[in-house]
């Protein structure tokens, strides 16, 4: 059993099921990527892992503990960090305040965690007293990731972290994500830019219509002619 194991997830928002027995797993220190065509249920799968989607079947465990019935807030306490795709910073608050809010549930001293985040994202240290809303798109994503890291999560989930940023910024963000993974955190992300994401991923999950179509290592998926033809544009 992997660190995060979400097995046979089936469910939807009240109406028809969106996920059909979908399984996602990640090991500590690894990067897993969910890719697939539009409407494949990529973000939905991630929301299900985070407890934002009611599941009819299946279960989610984190570090061997069953968290299927926890609220998202309680999953944060259990060691999950989540970076939404949009509106993922407190725009009117400074960078530092954003990080403090990330650590809101922590009772202990979080100064060293903040120092680590600043080491990881030096630009944030420079702009610590600027409102997050005034930063550029890429810097804002760094704030968002930094905020999620403040709880010292064991699993960090990123919903399309590179949506709407330039290719250069995207490469930089992926570099940072690799660095985060190197600290032993499990990373699960949803990505539109499948090719670049699979390049850095240890594992890839290709979803189609809410079901697992292909599951393999990132490199293997990149090499698979079927995957290349259907999902990576040849």
């Amino acid at each position: 059993m992997k660190y995060l194991t979400a097995e046979n997830m089936t469910g939807g928002y009240g109406g028809a099921d969106i996920l059909h027995s979908c399984t996602i797993t990640v090991e500590e220190g690894e990067i897993a990527v969910i890719v697939g065509p539009n409407g494949a249920g990529k973000s939905t799968a991630m929301k299900a892992v985070f407890g934002m989607l009611p599941l009819r079947e299946g279960r989610v465990t984190l570090g061997g503990e069953d968290i299927t019935h926890l609220t998202p807030q309680d999953r944060v306490r259990a060691g999950m960090g989540f970076v939404p795709q949009t509106n993922n910073v407190f725009a009117s608050m400074t960078v530092q305040e954003n990080l403090e809010m990330g650590a809101y549930i922590r009772e202990d001293d979080f100064a060293d965690t903040m120092a680590q985040v600043f080491d990881l994202f030096p630009i944030l240290k420079e702009k610590r007293n600027q409102p997050a809303g005034e930063l550029s798109g890429g810097q804002r994503q760094q704030v968002a990731v930094g905020r999620a890291l403040m709880t010292r999560p064991k699993l960090l989930m990123l919903d399309e972290p590179t949506a709407g940023v330039s290719p250069i910024v995207m490469d930089e963000l992926f570099d940072r994500i690799l660095e985060v993974a190197a600290t032993g955190i499990a990373i699960l992300m949803v990505e539109q830019n499948a090719r670049q994401a699979l390049n850095i991923a240890d594992h890839g999950f290709v979803l189609v219509q809410g079901q697992n179509r292909f599951t393999d290592t990132g490199a293997a998926l990149m090499a698979d002619p079927d995957v290349r033809k259907s999902f990576l544009g040849g």
Binding site: Q73, P84, N87, A91, M93, G102, Y104, R147
Partner: peptide, 11 residues
């Protein structure tokens, strides 16, 4: 500022 994110942060 951002109700959803505040909830995510455990506020």
């Amino acid at each position: 500022d951002n109700e959803d994110l505040a909830l995510l942060s455990g506020i």
